[in-house]
Amino acid sequence: MRRPAIVAVALVAVVLVTAWWLTSPQRMAADSLPAHTPDVAAGEQVFWVGGCASCHASPVDGRRAKGEDKLRLGGGLELDTPFGVFRVPNISPHADGIGGWSTLDFVNAMQAGVSPNGRHYYPSFPYTSYAKMRVEDVIDLKAFIDTLPAVEGLVADHSLGFPWSVRRGIGLWKRRYLDTGFVMADMDSEQLERGRELVEGAGHCGECHTPRDGFGGLLADQWLVGAPNPDGAGRVPNITPGGKAVGDWSVSDIAYYLESGFTPDFDTVGGSMVAVQENLAKLPKSDLDSIAAYLKSLPAR
């Protein structure tokens, strides 16, 4: 009775090949990049909206970097998650960081979640949001990061439990959750479209304000309704017009909060939103108005 054995072996082979194919990292092709002359000043704006410094700036004396230190992207911050500890890598323009990377390498990391040597990144690097950015913005961003100080030092690897330690498995996750389309499909004005691009793309607001399913994917039908706080007690608030606080805020109240860090009743911004607000304060007022208008246009939940 050889036949069933052969069939079984063939079946296993098919499953393995399919799994291999399903999980294989998909890189973008060089010719998919648009012809675009990088604009460093525009790249700096993208850098602040993207909050790269909040994760990649090397902590100073065990504390979050402030001021000029936010531009030293040597990594080293530890992100404590249910899956294990992620150690944020060096992305400064040093050989220990992204020095020597091509623009295509960078775009693939930011928008396909794939490293230059073809490995998947964990979504603790919020590329599922960055995938929604305009490629031109990503190219500008790289040009800006290339002007920052080169910081020496490789960061130790993550400490994750099985099966999370197997990077290949992220391929399946990406098939389900990596989507370049916007959550809110129809926007009726240029201002709202700009707001959407900032909130859903580079600003990655959903990464904190939207709840996740059991695999860590964002629940699009509960977009920005608030979520458990990833770094400790309490909740990240609902920022749709149904939110307890934001519900009563005007567009101008929200914009002023993002600009100054003060709520309409003059309490101050707190927790992990402090770093986000400090970054957003560097944007032109028109962008903050666009973000506020977009939030106000969401269905109240």
Binding site: G234, R235, S260, G261, F262, T268, V269, G270, G271, V274
Partner: peptide, 17 residues
Amino acid sequence: VFNTCKGCHDNYRIEEE
């Protein structure tokens, strides 16, 4: 002045819900 409010709260105040 407003920045000093935030600076102190960031390090020396925890907000309870």
